[in-house]
């Protein structure tokens, strides 16, 4: 498989928040089995792209094509059902719930009739342990509350949730921004493991070094526009920096 097909294609996406034009005419694509990075300054619109694909925001214009179909997600669970899992910049974990409760949030294994759903806690705890073990995540126990975890452990839980449930695309919005050196390395290992397990990864990052090391494809955003796309092996960190600041014309 030399040139894999596009798993996600974003076509001419635009979105405004009142007078702020957060995205204007953004087009980019993500190939299956690859790590694709989006880089850009603060406020460039990276998180907004992520939230459109994840079903949090609805774009004003443009199409999102996922797995060969135009999708119109109105709610995040629809994106999840389609196979898109997102690790948001703010993690989207509930601090006072346990690790396993967070892993299964709105995906609870339950039995019952109609709207009365009784939780199968034992089963969820067991599967949560498996999920954590599979990614070799260093979480103390799936029964501890997220509040007690370090930044890196929280990130690991969030990634673990995204990687589970046989998702096709895992989106990560600045997963290592708040982490120390050790924790960053562990998360990077996790990201590479996701790719080797067949997930496509869309990585938002500020760390050029990281982007150049991990990714196959890099998209550059500036002021709400996607100004350039490069294969990682055909570009350099200097060129990317130039594209971000606008010193190099796309």
């Amino acid at each position: 498989m030399s040139e894999s097909m596009d798993l996600l294609e974003i076509r001419n996406l635009s979105l405004s928040f009142g007078s702020v034009r957060a995205l204007s005419d953004v087009s980019l694509h993500v190939k299956a089995g690859e790590i694709t990075a989006i880089v850009g300054d603060n406020g460039a619109g990276k998180s907004t792209i992520v939230r459109c694909v994840a079903g949090v925001h609805r774009p004003d214009e443009g199409d999102i094509v996922f797995d060969g179909q135009v999708v119109n997600f109105v709610r995040p669970d629809q994106a999840r059902v389609a196979g898109i899992e997102t690790v948001h910049q703010n993690l989207a974990l509930v601090e006072d719930l346990t690790v396993w409760q967070n892993l299964f949030l709105n995906r609870e294994i339950s039995h019952g009739v109609g709207p009365v759903r009784f939780l199968q806690k034992k089963e969820m705890r067991k599967r949560a342990r498996d999920m954590v073990a599979k990614l070799a995540v260093n979480v103390p126990s799936v029964t501890s509350t997220v509040r007690r975890l370090s930044g890196g452990q929280r990130q690991a839980v969030a990634i673990c949730r995204a990687a589970g449930f046989s998702s096709k695309l895992v989106i990560m919005d600045e997963p290592t921004a708040a982490l120390g050196v050790q924790e960053t390395r562990r998360v990077e290992e996790l990201i590479e493991r996701l790719r080797s397990e067949g997930h496509a990864v869309l990585l938002i990052s500020h760390n050029f070094d990281q982007v150049m090391r991990l990714s196959d494809q890099v998209w550059v955003m500036r002021a709400g526009k996607c100004v350039a796309g490069r294969r990682a092996r055909d570009t350099t960190a200097q060129e990317i920096v130039g594209l971000i600041t606008g010193a190099i014309a796309a």
């Binding site: 995040p76 989207a92 509930v94 601090e95 409760q101 949030l105 709105n106």
Partner: peptide, 18 residues
């Protein structure tokens, strides 16, 4: 669980589709 999640973090709960 969804009641606790909503109280704990509306944003997080919504991000999972609750």
């Amino acid at each position: 669980t969804h009641v606790l999640a909503t109280g704990g973090s509306v944003e997080a709960a919504q991000a999972t589709g609750i």
